[in-house]
């Protein structure tokens, strides 16, 4: 990333090849619309080039940084595209859906994904739903609370302890 920050196009191509599929996949998962997702993923990758100098390795891996930019952009797009009415409709529509199953069934069963699946299965149902609805659907905790009919404070707490459990299960460095 240091070389990218200094304007090295070849270094950027290497980064691109490592992250483009993950960026596009995540954006697509949140937005569902391939054309929009391509546009947003493209913006994200250009942003990585543009802001590479701001990436600070002491704050986390380059991959996490890129994925953070991607998730943020996807979620911003989802939220801005939605008038209040559409959001309500969305919450209602999703009542029966369980994003985790959908994810687990649609991705390639690589070892990493199997591990993620196992770790997600280790969460309580409420933790798992809080984490996956927020991350994969772009829901705010308020929307998750409404959807799952639980208090706001509970959702905030489940998001935190659910992610902490995931972190420990996946062996993510702290």
């Amino acid at each position: 990333m240091g070389r990218v920050a200094r304007g090295d196009h070849a270094a950027f191509e290497e980064v691109y090849d490592q992250v483009a599929g993950q960026v596009y996949g995540l954006v697509l998962r949140v937005l569902r619309n391939p054309a929009q997702s391509e546009e947003v993923a493209q913006d994200v990758l250009v942003e990585v080039w543009r802001s590479a100098a701001r990436y600070d390795p002491s704050k986390g891996s380059a991959r996490a940084w890129v994925m953070t930019v991607a998730h943020r952009r996807a979620v911003d797009r989802v939220r801005s595209a939605q008038a209040a009415a559409t959001r309500e409709e969305r919450v209602a529509r999703l009542d029966v859906r369980r994003p985790f199953d959908e994810v687990a069934d649609s991705v390639e069963r690589t070892l990493d994904v199997e591990r993620l699946r196992r770790c997600l299965n280790g969460l309580t149902e409420l933790q798992r739903e809080s984490v996956t609805f927020a991350y994969y659907e772009g829901y705010t905790y308020r929307e998750v609370a409404e959807l799952l009919k639980v208090p706001l404070a509970t959702v905030k707490t489940r998001m935190r302890d659910g992610l902490i459990r995931m972190r420990d299960c996946l062996g993510v460095e702290r």
Partner: peptide, 25 residues
Amino acid sequence: GLTETAARLGQAVAAEPPPGMRAAV
């Protein structure tokens, strides 16, 4: 740590980008 963990959730849903994206970027 939690941002790193969330990124793993993102990595798990990687998908093949459309063919023209690389050149466009």
